[in-house]
Write a protein that binds this DNA or RNA. Sequence first.
DNA 1: ATAAAATACTACTATTTCAGTAGGAATAAC
DNA 2: GTTATTCCTACTGAAATAGTAGTATTTTAT
Lengths: 144, 144
Amino acid sequence: MKLSTRTRYGLRAILELAENVEKGPLQLRVIAQRQEISPKYLEQLITVLRSAGLVRSIRGAKGGYVLAKPPSKIRLDEVFNCLEGAVTTAECVDDGTACQRAPDCAARIIWTQVQQAVENVLKAVTLQDLIRKAKAGGSVNYQI
Amino acid sequence: MKLSTRTRYGLRAILELAENVEKGPLQLRVIAQRQEISPKYLEQLITVLRSAGLVRSIRGAKGGYVLAKPPSKIRLDEVFNCLEGAVTTAECVDDGTACQRAPDCAARIIWTQVQQAVENVLKAVTLQDLIRKAKAGGSVNYQI
DNA sequence: ATAAAATACTACTATTTCAGTAGGAATAAC
DNA sequence: GTTATTCCTACTGAAATAGTAGTATTTTAT
């Protein structure tokens, strides 16, 4: 289940933008340095975030990247979706016709539950939420 | 997030055993046929389930495979763990020393929440639970 | 204008993982 | 001892992952 570096780096990049939202555009090079990501690779990831409409770019000298929306309006499922793709554990969960067994498949039940559990978490949290929690003492985690 | 065929096929195979738990050993060939999985590939998967102690094999003619424990004693996290590996979204979630940023990393918070959500689902369900639900009308899903 | 600083775009590549396949050895039933 | 079955070792093609390389374009500052 390990997430790709694509997703992990991409989230860290957009969080970096969210944390510096009031300070004007942030250059790729700066994000890459702070997050210890190869600049050229990060460029790919940020392109994805840009085409998904989560990040806006400013070209030319003194340019860089900014969030396209305030951090409170960007939910984690949006970020996840464009980096990792949909939270689909198995085809049949979203598409009941993908397999004839689907209607009474025991496996499908658990994959559906897992998928919904993940979606629920991601949909309930925004970039702002995360930053606030991180500042408030970080990794402490309250079971829901 | 799509699960590997390894995990999806493997679960279907062990569910097949669980559904036929009282009928003596089930041959690889039969499981493969019923679940439409390549027998040779399934052999690999079932080997993994066997070395994890979830399945027992009976060699020779009239041999086959049986569950090593009753279906009510096999939790889904056990099955998942040996097929897909641990439900670890990112290194740092389980190992706080994997990254210096971990203590106040915003990203780590969400990956922890996702991981715990998945673990909670998998730990709460056994093979028997799944089979019962599937028989009771299958894919209907109640939000927890 | 021109140089410098930045993003945008296109293409390539090495490594690893995934999803199998192939063939024979060992074991047990009859 | 023949047949049915699991067990073991090894190989393989295709795709995904995680980058790298080089050039073009846009904007700012002088």
